[in-house]
């Protein structure tokens, strides 16, 4: 296992390092001069040059990259080029809310996906399977910006039971906070829930065909015990893999969901920063999103290898 980890972790770090270069290089391709934008529309060339020097944009690209990377690693994200605000503070404010949203979505995805997946995997009744199958197909395919607007239309406009958008910290006021969280979290969780349901159903069907379950039936185990203590643990490993990848994708999905529900998270910050040409914030957040994806993927691989020893011996 340790040998597998020793092989797997450096390659993830290499991809992360290459991705950081890609983010840095791509954002530097962006048209528009951040120094000119930061200095304002009426600035003279001398003022722009002074601004460029102040922002460190006249250093060589290599030293700019290294300075940026050092800042990222030490947690010093610097100041926004145009607004001048502390990026660390902006990101901290938004990140808590995004984590709240994605955590809610992960819980819902596991609950809904788990229930639907068990239902589809176990039930031999055709109507049950057909309905669950259609529901997961829809939940998987319907984009978040469609399901989100539909949720607002039904639960906030036609039957006004939940707020259409906004945010209240769960820590400050849990009862109000949950009301704001339900719709965005549900919206973000649907595609992941559907994916989990499908994988779990396939995996359960395979396990249920195994001989040891027939033995279980023969020696008179209760169905519930048979399903949850004997079948489910053996069906979980392939599902775990997909859960990790789904969480990694949620950060991208959060950009849209936060826009629908006016949720003040890093997704909104990223979108606004692109529109405002705040290149340094964009660069920081993109690296963050890519890093989260790569690290989650790596953890998933390690967990998978831990559960299933066959993985470790593959090249």
């Amino acid at each position: 296992m340790i040998r597998y980890a020793i092989r797997r972790i450096p390659s993830a770090l290499l991809v992360l390092f290459l991705a950081s270069i890609a983010v840095f290089a791509l954002i530097h391709l962006a048209k528009g001069d951040p120094a000119a934008l930061a200095a304002g529309p009426d600035a003279s060339p001398a003022e722009i040059a002074a601004k460029r020097h102040q922002l460190g944009l006249d250093d060589s690209l290599a030293s700019q990259y290294l300075n940026w990377l050092r800042g990222e690693l030490t947690g010093d994200l610097g100041n926004a080029y145009i607004s001048g605000g502390s990026i660390g503070e902006l990101v901290r404010n938004g990140l808590g809310n995004t984590v709240e949203l994605t955590s809610g979505a992960v819980v819902l995805a596991l609950a809904l996906g788990g229930a639907a997946g068990m239902g589809m995997g176990v039930s031999r009744r055709r109507p049950v399977n057909a309905v669950l199958n259609a529901l997961t197909t829809l939940a998987f395919a319907v984009p978040t910006y469609v399901s989100g607007v539909l949720l607002v239309l039904v639960l906030a406009v036609i039957f006004p039971i939940l707020p259409a958008g906004g945010h209240e910290s769960l820590l400050r006021d849990p009862t109000i906070g949950v009301q704001y969280l339900i719709m965005p979290a549900l919206c973000l969780s649907l595609p992941a829930a559907a994916t989990i349901a499908r994988f779990l159903a396939t995996s359960m069907r395979q396990v249920l065909d195994e001989d040891f379950l027939a033995t279980g039936v023969a020696k008179g185990l209760k169905t519930r015990r048979l399903l949850f203590r004997h079948a489910l643990p053996n069906a979980l490993p392939p599902v775990l893999t997909i859960v990790g990848i789904q969480i990694g994708q949620m950060l991208g999905g959060a950009i849209v969901v936060e826009a629908i529900f006016a949720w003040p998270g890093v997704g909104q910050l990223l979108r606004d920063s692109v529109l405002d040409h705040e290149y340094l914030i964009v660069q920081d957040l993109l690296l963050f999103a890519v890093a989260v994806f790569i690290v989650l993927q790596m953890i998933t691989d390690l967990v998978h290898a831990y559960i299933d020893p066959r993985i470790r011996t593959e090249h």
Binding site: L18, A22, I27, G253, L270, V274, V290, F293
Partner: peptide, 22 residues
């Protein structure tokens, strides 16, 4: 490795990246 790096940019993160460039 190039594919790995590209896949680390999930669809919408890639969209944000491209939109900030062009």
């Amino acid at each position: 490795r190039i594919f790995d790096v590209m896949l680390a940019f999930t669809a919408l993160i890639a969209g944000v990246t491209v939109a900030s460039i062009v």
